[in-house]
């Protein structure tokens, strides 16, 4: 076969991928641009200014909402991914067992029910606990978020696990590796892309959630989305754009650092 023939190439795929990246970033660029707008509006350009950064910096409500959003998302994504890995191991690559369908339906249940329904039922259920125990802390939100993140974490992990090469694990077991060791040194590294995908999806899903949070939150527990929902009726201020741009900048810095880290490691 001629050397120039690239078996990986599919005509048009690179073009579509590039288009996809452009489309993904177009709204984001607009958002960044408007965060520097001097005017009141999120849609009318009136010149360059940092006023919204200054006013977001002074807005306690936005700041505590941001911190809360990130705290909940990180915790919930971590918990959801951890339990999803275990659940995926129990439901994938095993002989079909009684109750497998039930387990599967259970895991995916949060996907199947519109948010508002889970929200209303959680409102009633958690309120009973709140009244009974007097505890009004963050764990209600964290547990609620973890629950609806589980299917999003589970799906990519399961997809990765399906058809993953069993021979290495068998070899490991043949060499008297304990199940934990086999998992730690053989399964986990192979599973890693799935875990990463699941974790990132959960993080994003948690960060975006409005309706369930709105119904579960207690006093002082506004997240960025519920804070914005409250503003929706009146008007969204560009402070939101400013804080989002700041978060974006931080994430891009982190990604860049990771990129250089992975290159030097080679």
């Amino acid at each position: 076969m001629a050397k120039s023939f690239d078996v990986r190439r599919q005509p048009g795929f690179t073009a579509i991928a590039m288009l996809c990246f452009v489309l993904l970033y177009l709204p984001i660029l607009l958002l960044v641009a408007y965060s520097f707008n001097a005017g009141q509006s999120i849609s009318q350009w009136e010149g360059l200014s940092l006023r919204w950064y200054a006013s977001a910096w002074q807005n306690d409500q936005i700041q505590s909402a941001t911190i809360l959003s990130v705290t909940i998302a990180v915790t919930a994504a971590f918990l959801a991914t951890s339990v999803a890995v275990l659940a995926a191991l129990a439901t994938t690559r095993v002989k079909p067992w009684r109750g497998q369908t039930v387990a599967f339906a259970m895991i995916n249940q949060p996907l199947m029910v519109p948010e508002i329904v889970t929200a209303v039922s959680l409102l009633i259920f958690f309120a009973m606990i709140k009244v009974a125990t007097g505890y009004t802390g963050l764990w209600y939100l964290i547990i609620a978020h973890t629950a609806f993140c589980i299917p999003f974490a589970y799906m990519p992990i399961r997809a990765r696990l399906q058809g993953m090469n069993l021979s290495l694990e068998q070899a490991g077991a043949d060499l008297y590796g304990t199940p934990v060791k086999v998992f730690r040194y053989i399964t986990l590294p192979q599973l890693w892309p799935g875990i990463l995908a699941g974790g990132m999806l959960s993080f994003v899903i948690s960060l975006d959630d409005v309706v369930i949070t709105e119904f579960v939150k207690s006093a002082g527990q506004d997240t960025l989305p519920t804070y914005m929902l409250g503003q929706l009726r009146r008007n969204i201020t560009p402070e939101i754009n400013a804080i989002s741009t700041a978060l974006l900048a931080i994430s891009i810095l982190m990604v860049t650092a990771m990129f250089f880290f992975s290159r030097t490691r080679k």
Binding site: L24, Y25, P27, I28, L31, S69, F203, V204, L207, D208, V210, L224, P225, M228, L229, L232, I240, S244, L247, L248, S251, I252, V255
Partner: peptide
């Protein structure tokens, strides 16, 4: 990265 920005 674009999805780390809030849905709304």
């Amino acid at each position: 990265i674009p999805f780390w920005t809030n849905l709304l």
